[in-house]
Design a protein around this nucleic acid. Structure first.
Lengths: 228, 228
DNA sequence: CTTGATATTGACCATGTGGTCAGGTTGCTT
DNA sequence: AAGCAACCTGACCACATGGTCAATATCAAG
């Protein structure tokens, strides 16, 4: 789907400076991005219409196109923003860290991301669901490397007897899916639990639950015990 | 979204018999449903076009409408088919069953469903992602009841000391998300693991992994030990 | 005030959309 | 062979789609 169009339709004005600012521009762009994230998340790329985005942002359609150049450009920009958020929580870990601490931090931060940016989370999910036409490169490159680096550390932990010798990649997928679920399937969660929304308390409970089950499930003893 | 249109556009002919058969009809309907499932799963309800479905089915657009009446009707029918599949694997369990056996069967059957019907699985996911406009009733009714019935049994197991006192609803969500992941996020899984597809062996490995981690994680001892 | 960049937007266009319909062909039953 | 229901489909419709453009309005700097 994403044909290689080198320059993705910047507004025809202000070609000079890379990122021209302007208070109006910033404010409007923010508004548009937020609205677009919601619409794309709900209807997917094809199902979203610029008109709907414009209405959600309280602007005429032309104005949206003026700032974003094209529907495709807007979508790509949203994906990039989401990947940036994702990357931001991937701080480095080493073999010498405590598995329990790292895994808990992993679950917590991923859960927080899904909660802080549910629309972005869903946008990402919709993109993958549709076969990831815009994210192939990212998945097979950056993200793959990141996963494999983590996986190697998990394996070393297993060798040192700090955790069970489970397949580390499946473990990462387990954490991803379990945390992502509460953003992507929010409608299902709310419908089944009969709630209007998930409170902070709910989220904390879920996080604790997931941490407990997953850590115990792969034989990691919580850090409450005596340190090494 | 789903306005109450009592009669969802049956083909104007054959009004008499409820479910008129005919070999041609059956064959074509199957073809159309399969094609539609794929297109809806990839692009969501709004993003899917009847034209695209028709092309995927190798039929003219008019023919698709002839059999299915309307895009909406076709979509609803697919959702219902998927819910039926889902319901089919929900056999009854009782407090006296072995938790380990039940949980493993739960994981296995859910995994098998996601694998046997990946497009249906994704279709369902897209529907939920979009706020479940067509499935509100199902979620807040049937499915909710089912979950709560199971939850009560898990609680009783916990009381009898057969498993840890974890929140049973979060546990069910954990199993759902972990298994669903391999259908819905297939593109991500394949991209990261660098595969073309998940083999039967892969799926068996994943199932074993999930069973082991989740059972251990909530303190259920595998059935290999002496039976009650 | 003047000037030039930025911001705004309604009108417009080619194409795609779901859906209808009339007029045809096929195939089974009598 | 006749008749009739099922099947098939190209032409068509009103409307939504992404995108362009020219005309105007706003605003900061000289």
């Amino acid at each position: 789907m994403p044909e290689g169009s080198s320059i993705p339709d910047k507004p025809r004005t202000q070609e000079r400076g890379e990122a021209a600012n302007g208070a109006t521009r910033l404010r409007n762009e923010r508004e548009i991005l937020a609205a677009a994230e919601k619409v794309f998340a709900t209807h997917g790329y094809r199902g979203a219409s610029v008109q709907a985005i414009a209405e959600a942002a309280g602007l005429p359609k032309s104005n949206v196109l003026y700032y974003m150049g094209s529907k495709r450009g807007l979508y790509v920009r949203l994906l990039e923003r989401m990947m940036a958020r994702w990357n931001a929580l991937l701080d480095d870990i080493s073999v010498d860290d405590d598995p329990a601490e790292v895994l808990e931090a992993f679950i917590r931060s991923k859960m927080a991301l899904s909660r802080r940016h549910p629309e972005g989370s869903r946008l990402f999910a919709a993109e993958i669901l549709g076969g990831a036409p815009f994210l192939q490169e990212y998945l097979r490159g950056e993200l793959r490397d990141w996963v494999q680096a983590r996986a190697r550390i998990f394996e070393q932990w297993a060798e040192r007897g700090l955790m069970d010798p489970v397949d580390p990649v499946w473990l990462i997928f387990l954490i991803w899916s379990a945390t992502q679920h509460y953003a992507d399937f929010e409608a299902q969660v709310l419908g089944i639990t009969g709630r209007d929304e998930l409170s902070d308390v709910d989220v904390e409970q879920i996080t604790t639950f997931l941490t407990r089950v997953i850590l115990k499930g792969c034989g990691v003893t919580p850090p409450s015990a005596a340190p090494g």
